[in-house]
Design a binder for these strands. Structure first.
Lengths: 100, 100
DNA sequence: TATCTGGGTAAAAAATTGTTTACCAGATAT
DNA sequence: ATATCTGGTAAACAATTTTTTACCCAGATA
């Protein structure tokens, strides 16, 4: 049973087309930073900024792997399974929580 | 089948605690501007601003009534029935639309 | 040496949102 | 006349979010 503030917070993370596309792209297979950048056509700091927010909200998972051959740490992103619903039932819960 | 931009737009309207509370308060009965202002403790222009966005997104309905006795136009707000879902299935649709 | 890859960050600019202040009309009441 | 109520709006200011620019590391390659 979320409060209006809590629900708004997660919706704020989802309410961005770039972040929705990142989640869509990492839905079936994990993607590297570079892959995402090329598919979305956005700058590195911008992608990292969006990824931060998604990881922070636990919508996106990170797997850190060490490439033995190239001696490089790699990060792979994959969308976490989630389901956010906003309907009358959820609003009713908010109403009850705000009255309390 | 929404695009990432379309879904983000409606989520942006929902991603605000005040607007979620307005929808919750107008869920079971229609409310006047004054009622909402007193229950939420916010200023008139601020309430109207939030209401505008909700009505614009078709999440909130307005009924305009003329009070014969007091010769005053009254507006009553009621939450429209809706259900917004964000999950793997929706993200998959976004993925297909963005590839197209 | 210079450039590429991988991983970033910090700060500033740009754009969007949220909120306040001040004002409008029309009718009623003091 | 002054103040209340209903319904607003328009402009300014504040705060947040998005995006860019510039910089950092290390290791491999030309």
């Amino acid at each position: 049973m979320p409060t209006a503030e809590e629900l708004a917070e997660i919706l704020k993370v989802l309410a961005n087309p770039v972040r929705l596309k990142i989640l869509a792209l990492c839905l079936f297979k994990e993607r590297s930073s570079r892959e995402l950048r090329e598919m979305l056509g956005i700058s590195k700091p911008l992608l990292i900024n969006h990824i931060k927010k998604l990881v922070n909200a636990k919508l996106l998972d990170v797997r850190i792997a060490f490439d033995e051959e190239r001696m490089v740490v790699m990060k792979y992103y994959k969308t976490n399974e989630f389901k956010v619903v906003i309907d009358g039932k959820v609003l009713e819960e908010i109403l009850i929580n705000s009255l309390k």
